[in-house]
Simulated assay, not measured.
Amino acid sequence: MDGHDVFSVSTLHALYYTQYIIAILITLLNIIYNIYPIMLQQYNRLRMVQMRKKQNMRS
């Protein structure tokens, strides 16, 4: 079970027991938890695109 599953199960559990504030808090924490990896992946993808363009220009 990875982090995404834990957040999903926790949110569903909170919603089942009508703990809406807790469900919203867990969802917000999930978003914050995942922002850095998403941004890092986008940054690395852009770097790879630039590197490929440079390689294509050389050949």
Rank of each mutant, 00 (worst) to 15 (best):
S59V: 11
I22R: 03
M39L: 14
N44C: 07
Q42M: 12
I26H: 01
I24T: 13
D5G: 09
I38L: 12
R52T: 08
M1Q: 06
F7H: 04
Q55R: 14
N30V: 02
V49F: 04
A14C: 12
V9S: 02
I22D: 03
I32E: 02
M1C: 06
L28R: 04
I21S: 02
H4Q: 10
N44V: 10
I22W: 02
R52L: 13
Y36W: 12
V6D: 01
G3M: 04
Y36S: 13
Y20E: 09
L15R: 08
L46N: 15
R58S: 12
T11R: 07
K54Y: 13
M1N: 04
D5C: 14
N44F: 09
M57Y: 11
I32H: 02
I22N: 01
I24M: 07
L46A: 11
M51F: 10
M57P: 00
P37H: 02
K53W: 06
L29R: 11
L40N: 10
T18D: 10
M51V: 14
V6W: 01
T27K: 06
I21P: 00
A23E: 01
Y16L: 15
L40T: 10
F7S: 05
L25M: 08
D5P: 01
N30D: 09
I31A: 06
H4L: 11
S59R: 15
Q19C: 08
N30M: 10
Y17T: 15
T27G: 06
L12W: 03
L12F: 11
R47M: 06
L46F: 07
V49M: 08
Y33C: 03
Q42L: 12
P37S: 08
Y33E: 01
N34Y: 05
I24F: 05
Y43E: 09
D2H: 04
L29Q: 13
Y16G: 15
I31K: 06
L25V: 12
N34I: 01
V49Y: 06
N44P: 00
S8I: 12
I38R: 09
R45C: 04
Q41P: 00
H13C: 14
V49S: 04
Q50H: 08
T18Q: 05
V49R: 11
M57G: 05
Y17V: 10
I31E: 02
L12I: 05
L25P: 00
S59L: 09
Q41I: 05
R58V: 13
M51T: 13
A14Q: 03
R52F: 11
R47L: 09
M39V: 15
G3H: 03
Y20R: 10
V49K: 10
S59C: 07
Q55I: 12
M48C: 06
D5M: 11
T27S: 12
D5I: 15
D2M: 05
K54V: 04
M48F: 06
M1W: 05
Q50T: 06
I35G: 02
P37F: 04
V6K: 06
P37T: 08
R47P: 00
V6P: 00
D2P: 03
Y36D: 05
T27P: 01
M51K: 15
